[in-house]
Design a protein around this nucleic acid. Structure first.
Length: 263
DNA sequence: CAGCAGGGGGCGG
DNA sequence: CGCCCCCTGCTGA
């Protein structure tokens, strides 16, 4: 289990990725409105051929995918329906595996856990990341992947370059794009425990979780705060070490190099 | 209302 | 391709 280091950062959002090609992909999908692939049967359009094919399947009367388990006649119009059928019916895989890391409640599907995290625990998406990611832990449960992100200086530098160049490609030189993305927090809680009851009205409380063993480790702060409406709100802050700069222990200059999850 | 699941779309890897 | 999003309908408390 080691940290990923994503060297390429999108100048328009907080996304980072390991390869220039993935960055190009990201730019096309996330920051372009072009939808060159159009459906003949309806006004659907999308950004790549795979998605168009997937969509076309939904127009077909006959289910295009069938379960290949012996004597099983299940079929569906989408591959993922068949796969989930297979897992559930033929592999007896129906125990809820998505576990809330805050209250230990379990869910059968990631998106239902997502709803839970947002409604019950006021989680928010980080900018540039349209969804939560879940990561399988050693106990077999999927939990929210706690991550992220870049230093603010880096983002500002990139935006400057963008203004000057206005040529995206040119500003994406490797040396100018250095970011770190964290993987999950170590010292992961065991199966039970860690549900440490937090009280209402606790103002600010920061729990520092250092990140990894063998790499210079950024620090994640989990802040449980109360917002303007008096609701509790959980925000993750990450201090990432800028290249060449010694990783700092817990005290950000003045919040300058901190990035938050909210929007 | 909460929880769950089917279906279909978005997009990172 | 696989994971996760949203929308939606069903079910049971």
């Amino acid at each position: 289990m080691r940290n990923h280091v994503n060297h390429y950062k999108c100048p328009l959002c907080d996304m980072t990725c390991p390869l220039p090609s993935s960055l190009r992909n990201h730019m096309r999908f996330r920051h372009s409105e072009d939808r060159p692939f159009k459906c003949d049967c309806c006004d659907y359009s999308c950004k790549n051929l795979i998605d168009l094919r997937k969509h076309l399947d939904t127009h077909s009367k006959e289910p295009a995918y069938r379960c290949d388990f012996e004597n099983c006649s299940f079929s569906a119009r989408s591959l993922c329906s068949v796969k989930s059928h297979y897992r559930k019916v033929h592999e007896g895989d129906s125990e809820p595996r998505y576990k809330c890391h805050v209250c230990d409640k379990c869910f059968t599907r990631g998106n239902n856990l997502t709803v839970h995290l947002r409604k019950k625990h006021q989680f928010k998406w980080p900018s540039g990341h349209p969804r939560f990611r879940y990561k399988e832990h050693e106990d077999g449960y999927m939990r929210l992947q706690l991550v992220r992100y870049e230093s603010v200086e880096l983002t500002q530098q990139l935006l400057r370059q963008l203004q000057e160049g206005s040529d995206l490609g040119a500003s994406l030189s490797e040396s100018s794009l250095q970011g770190t993305i964290l993987e999950t927090v170590p010292g992961e809680p065991g199966p039970q425990e860690e549900a440490e009851e937090e009280e209402e009205g606790r103002g600010h409380e920061a729990t520092a979780l250092s990140a990894s063993q063998d790499t210079p480790s950024p620090v994640i702060h989990v802040v449980n705060q109360t917002n303007a409406q008096g609701e509790r709100e959980i925000v993750y802050y990450v201090l990432s070490e800028a290249p060449g700069e010694a990783p700092q222990p817990l005290s950000p200059p003045q919040g300058a190099s901190w990035k938050s999850f909210g929007e």
